[in-house]
Computed example of a mutant assay.
Amino acid sequence: MDLSQGVPIQIHLETFVTQGEDNETHVFDEPGTLVQMGNALYIRYQEVDEDAGTSMPVTMKLREDGDVQLSRGSSNGDTQLKLFFANEKRVLTRYRTPYGIIPVETVTPRIDVRMTTEPVAGEVYIEYQLFANNQHLGDYRLRLQFNA
């Protein structure tokens, strides 16, 4: 299947957040697109918050070396978060907010990416810790499943 033209996919995303004593779970089921550009695969979708009446563009770049880049928000909007996940590495990135840019770091103890092409389907599982100003903000797990 030619992924260079983009393939419509259905996305099921679960995120688990632990911050101190607080635990949160978020689940999203959204339509999206899977596109291959060069050696990378891009999963694109809109994260819809029906309660707030908003949507946020999300792009997940699956790199050939197994690393994953997650972008949430748009480059021309007032909020954009870019996170980089590299297995067992600490990576510095930035979070642009209406109040300025906040440097953040991810530490990724586990990252698994699996995909099949016939049929087009896959799963991305990431466990990571988030830090800002050398303070541990929380532990996160993300599981994104998709299929055409």
Rank of each mutant, 00 (worst) to 15 (best):
M1V: 11
M1T: 12
M1A: 13
S4E: 06
G6R: 03
G6S: 01
V7M: 10
V7N: 03
V7S: 06
P8A: 05
P8D: 09
Q10P: 00
I11W: 05
H12N: 09
L13G: 02
F16T: 08
Q19V: 13
Q19D: 03
D22G: 05
N23T: 14
H26T: 13
H26P: 02
H26L: 13
V27Q: 13
V27T: 08
D29P: 01
D29S: 13
L34F: 06
V35W: 07
Q36C: 10
G38N: 15
G38H: 12
N39E: 13
A40T: 05
A40C: 10
L41I: 15
Y42W: 11
I43D: 02
Y45K: 00
Y45P: 03
Q46Y: 09
E47I: 05
V48G: 09
D51R: 11
D51F: 11
D51Q: 05
D51W: 08
A52K: 15
G53L: 08
S55N: 12
M56S: 14
P57Y: 08
V58I: 08
T59V: 09
K61Y: 06
K61V: 14
L62D: 09
L62A: 01
L62S: 03
R63C: 11
R63F: 14
E64P: 08
E64M: 14
E64G: 09
D65Q: 07
D65R: 02
D67H: 06
D67L: 09
D67K: 14
R72Y: 07
G73K: 08
D78L: 13
T79Y: 09
Q80A: 07
Q80S: 04
L83C: 13
A86P: 00
A86R: 10
A86C: 11
E88L: 02
R90H: 04
R90L: 01
V91L: 09
V91K: 02
L92V: 10
L92W: 06
R94P: 00
R96S: 01
I101S: 13
I101E: 06
P103D: 12
V104E: 02
E105T: 12
V107H: 00
V107S: 03
T108V: 00
T108S: 06
I111V: 04
D112M: 15
M115W: 03
T116H: 11
T116N: 04
T117E: 15
E118L: 15
V120I: 14
E123M: 08
E123A: 13
V124M: 01
Y125N: 04
E127A: 00
Q129H: 03
F131N: 04
A132F: 01
A132K: 07
A132E: 05
A132W: 09
N133R: 15
N133V: 02
Q135E: 14
Q135P: 10
L137D: 06
G138T: 02
G138A: 05
G138N: 07
D139C: 06
D139I: 01
R141Y: 01
R143A: 05
R143D: 07
R143T: 09
L144V: 11
L144Q: 04
Q145M: 05
F146R: 01
N147Q: 10
N147I: 04
